[in-house]
């Protein structure tokens, strides 16, 4: 765990989201300035929160700001500051590794794209496979490539939605190394994996049934304690 110092960069106020009759998020307030891990069981609303923050979805009410940019009123500008890693890779099977990155790089207007791609591919350890099609990649390799895809435009904010799902050991380590080096950026991570989630973060929060039920600094809480609180909170709502 490291000390990170940054102004509050993700601000969520009174955020709610309904799908038809289901309430996915209910009055969520959250501030993230360095690295927060949001724990919660499946269906708690974690993915919905990430989708709203990454401008893929509009909330029913409330507001969210990223680096002082309102994601509702200014989605296009907000997007250029956000990198998203989720359990879906966002990669085309029919394109080569390098082509995938080139395609997304163009969508993000990345300057010196070739150089950037080279260094990122090295970072995730795929330099000898860059000319291969993603269809031939293993799950772990895809996920590593997906990490470099999310970092293409050097985002200020990283949103991670269950990033460890389906990762092999190598990919999980790569991700942790990258996150660890990401000191000057803000990271919001969601997971139901308590051990992995607690490893690098500075703050923790627990989301159950669309509501934030617990917040704490990671330094003040040990793994066992977190586990106890988490199980208690989740059981209350089941």
């Amino acid at each position: 765990m490291k000390n990170r110092r940054k102004p509050k960069i993700i601000e969520i106020k009174g955020l709610s989201k309904n799908f038809g009759l289901t309430t996915a998020l209910n009055q969520v307030n959250l501030k993230v300035d360095n690295f927060l891990t949001l724990f919660g069981p499946n269906g708690a609303g974690k993915t919905t929160l990430i989708r709203i923050l990454s401008t893929l979805m509009k909330p029913s009410s409330g507001e969210a700001k990223i680096n002082n940019i309102d994601v509702l009123n200014n989605p296009v500008r907000a997007r250029s500051q956000i990198g998203v890693i989720s359990h879906e890779t966002h990669l085309y099977d029919g394109l080569k590794a390098e082509e995938n990155l080139k395609f997304y790089g163009k969508l993000y207007n990345v300057k010196n794209l070739d150089k950037r791609i080279n260094s990122l591919i090295k970072k995730v350890g795929l330099e000898h496979r860059e000319k291969d099609r993603v269809a031939d990649f293993s799950r772990g390799m895809r996920q590593r490539l997906s990490i470099s895809r999310a970092l293409l435009h050097d985002p200020l904010v990283l949103l991670l939605d269950e990033p460890y799902t389906g990762l092999d050991q190598h990919a999980a380590e790569t991700l942790e190394q990258i996150l660890d080096k990401f000191e000057d950026r803000t990271i919001l991570q969601t997971t139901h994996n308590l051990e992995r989630g607690l490893k690098l973060c500075c703050q923790v929060a627990i989301l159950v049934d669309g509501e934030i039920v617990y917040k704490a600094n990671a330094e003040e809480i040990g793994f066992e304690e977190l586990k106890q609180i988490y199980n208690q909170k989740v059981q209350q709502n089941e």
């Binding site: 009759l21 289901t22 049934d209 209350q236 709502n237 089941e238």
Partner: peptide, 16 residues
């Protein structure tokens, strides 16, 4: 819609 809402809330309060 209302019936479904009531159903949902009832299920929730029952478990709590």
């Amino acid at each position: 819609d209302e019936v479904q809402m009531i159903e949902k809330n009832r299920r929730r309060t029952n478990t709590e």
